[in-house]
Amino acid sequence: MKLTLKIWRQKDEHSKGKFESYQLDEVSPNSSFLEMLDQLNERLINDKKEPVVFDHDCREGICGTCSLYINGQPHGPDRGVTTCQLHMRRFKDGDTIHIEPWRAKSFPVIKDLMVDRSAFDRIMSAGGFISVNTSGNTQDANNIPINKEDADKAFDAAACIGCGACVAACKNASAMLFVSAKVSQFALLPQGQPESKQRALNMVRQHDKEGFGNCSNTGACEAECPKEISLENIARLNREYIGASLTTDA
């Protein structure tokens, strides 16, 4: 199939960017979206031009590295799918495809379509853990039975891949879905209980400090999340947060 690509090109964080147009013939519908971009890059290199920079790594939909805002949607038109798992059969011959980086003040563009998501790491460092040392002297793993429903819910929240699509999709560039997934995972497990309130407070504080917007419950994040993390997690975070604000000293 033939495609017209309109791709955001930007030299570095401080330069101004703009859209460039590229024609691509002979794209196989069986290629993945990123293989299509590989094809474009191979051509650019053969023409002695600089290839388009984009983030990608595992190409199995699990590492969370790939991003791309494709035709107005993070990770493109498929639901519950990352860009690397999006396949060209989803598009039609002759389509024009707009490709932009994630847009958020807290995700500055590094180059072209690549953004800096280290804000997520800092949110994690603020509280995204259970404070247990790796001594190997913890109790036996089966000492605390965990209700299967809770364990499954914790898993569903833990499935977040930290890609940032929630921020990209949210009209407020809020990262609440990301924060709530981690807070929920630990809040649902007995191991995470002791520090669950403080965790919610610390992670939300860091979230706000990073300059992400506020959650106004539009649900865009849930709809665009490649791992279909539920909005219920944000409510659980709110519950933890309100509880923490009312009961802790700090």
Binding site: A141, Q191, G192
Partner: peptide, 8 residues
């Protein structure tokens, strides 16, 4: 160790 860390 992993269960203590909250691995589901």
């Amino acid at each position: 160790q992993c269960v203590a860390q909250g691995v589901p």
